[in-house]
Design a protein around this nucleic acid. Structure first.
Lengths: 125, 125
DNA sequence: CGAACCTTGACACAACCGTGGTAAGGTTCG
DNA sequence: CGAACCTTACCACGGTTGTGTCAAGGTTCG
């Protein structure tokens, strides 16, 4: 069995083994399994666990938040919907198809610029 | 007083007035106030409330999730940190501290030796 | 003026979150 | 073999979410 067991991983990352299972159930870090079902944490998972810990500590966010961010990265449909809503204050109908999330990164400045120049759009109720 | 009061807004948007206050406390939609402190919902807020309702209905997410997405849009520091973590999945052995590698390599051979005599145990939990 | 609103604050409550523990049973390994 | 792990599943418990309701007091407007 190469890879650390859950308890060993817990000790080197600062999580409890209980939380390691929880993190996995949240869809964030799922180590591979041995033939008999034991979780086996490799260096990569250990590193991610540490940085995850750091991330949670530095900003005010929850595992659920990170899980949600991940969902948005993977589900472009969801991401598009949320992004669209967030930018909807200045209300504009036709919008970019919101492709991959990288466009989010690359376009962010443009989008911000767009967002602060709102065309006065009266909505008919 | 131009603008709908909270109850009127509730009726046209499908939220309860209670939830309208809650949505506001979540930082999502804050209508302007009259001189005496009454919430006054304009067409734009009403529209946003409706689309927010739609968004929550169509995807499996919470007000908190949308609030978090908004935080990420506004706080580029936070967004950067989360994005960085999410992209960190690819294996990068160089990032692993040397001492980590030591214990890793140390155990590896032993673990491998142990692993080459695996009884194919069917896991039946 | 008085009914019908509005405000904030508080109590209530189910459902979930984060976390620990325990139990019953399988796996590893000296 | 037997101690020390591992697995899942469940109980517990304070905290947060989402939602309603009620109270005490201010505002609007016919």
């Amino acid at each position: 069995m190469d890879g650390l067991t859950i308890q060993e991983a817990a000790e080197t990352t600062g999580w409890s083994s209980r939380m390691l299972r929880y993190v996995e159930r949240e869809g964030l870090i799922a180590p591979r399994r041995s033939a008999s079902g034991y979780r086996l944490y490799g260096p990569e998972e250990l590193q991610r666990l540490r940085t995850l810990r750091e991330l949670l500590g530095e900003h005010e966010l929850s595992l659920g938040d990170v899980g949600f961010a991940q969902r948005m990265v993977r589900d472009s449909d969801l991401r598009g919907a949320v992004e669209t809503w967030l930018q909807e204050s200045p209300t504009r109908p036709e919008d970019v198809p919101a492709n991959e999330w990288l466009s989010w990164e690359q376009d962010k400045h443009q989008r911000l610029l767009d967002a602060i120049t709102p065309p006065p759009t009266p909505v008919t109720n």
